[in-house]
């Protein structure tokens, strides 16, 4: 695990149709120490997905610095695992081969990477689904595979882009419980993008509220772990923090 730091990050692009420069990210600085879980929330269009895409290296940044463990980011790489809102599983690969894809790209032999994949599938209670294809699974199951596929590649930083936005409410709470448990077991460095305030507070050590391409506020979440919804639903501290963050987002 490594730290992630964003220093005066900016993104402007030229809209050729309108003929003008558009500023998506004005000036964002953020420190995520190794092993910390940070959620980024904000209204639609505040630039939260743009930040994640730049950290992942999918799109270039136009100003400032992105450092992973002190080294600048140049394009996509296996040191930053990504979990996508649309799951982005390979439909032509079984669940086992999806999870073993990262190790395969590193040249890990078949038997060894299958063992790695099975270990991580067990972590998410997916052992029974190893030989199935993604389209044979429910949305919730597919995203479990998405999370496990990113983790199995042992990234320094895990980037999650609204990963639970497209599953139903019950499944979402189960997935949040499971992600919380897995994070407590493995302690990866996580940046979690969401527009769901309770989700952001439930999962994170710290919630960053973004507005119009800038950091509006950072809220620490000192709620004790392990966190499970059965307990937090009625927890006063959780409610207070959620309301505090929600007020910030609504003011944004």
């Amino acid at each position: 695990m490594k730290s992630l730091s964003l220093k005066n990050l900016a993104k402007t692009y030229f809209d050729a149709y309108k003929g003008e420069h558009v500023t998506a990210i004005r000036d964002v600085s953020l420190e995520v120490p190794a092993g910390e879980f940070v959620s980024i929330v904000g209204p639609s269009g505040c630039g939260k997905s743009t930040i994640l895409n730049m950290v992942a290296g999918f799109i270039p940044h136009s100003g400032g610095e992105i450092l992973v463990g002190g080294a600048p980011v140049k394009g996509p790489g296996p040191d930053r695992g990504v979990v996508f809102q649309s799951f982005a599983l390979f439909p032509w690969k079984t669940v086992l081969d999806n999870v073993g894809f990262g190790p395969k790209m590193r040249g890990v032999p078949k038997a060894e990477r299958d063992a790695i994949a099975r270990e991580y599938l067990a972590l998410a209670g997916l052992s029974h689904a190893a030989d199935r294809y993604p389209n044979e699974l429910s949305g919730g199951m597919q995203q479990r595979v998405g999370v496990v596929r990113a983790l199995a590649n042992q990234p320094d930083v895990l980037l999650m882009d609204e990963p639970f936005a497209s599953v139903d409410a019950q499944t979402r709470m189960t997935l949040q419980d499971e992600l919380s448990r897995i994070w407590e077991e493995r302690r990866p460095t996580v940046v979690f993008i969401t527009h769901d305030v309770p989700e952001a507070v439930f999962l994170a050590n710290r919630v960053v509220v973004l507005s119009k391409g800038k950091v509006l506020a950072e809220v620490d979440v000192p709620i004790s772990r392990p966190r499970v919804w059965d307990r937090l639903v009625a927890d006063e501290q959780f409610k207070d923090l959620s309301n505090q963050v929600l007020a910030l987002v609504r003011s944004a």
Partner: peptide, 9 residues
């Protein structure tokens, strides 16, 4: 993008 961030050339 998924393949790139899993280390595929």
């Amino acid at each position: 993008r998924a393949a790139q961030s899993l280390g595929a050339s």
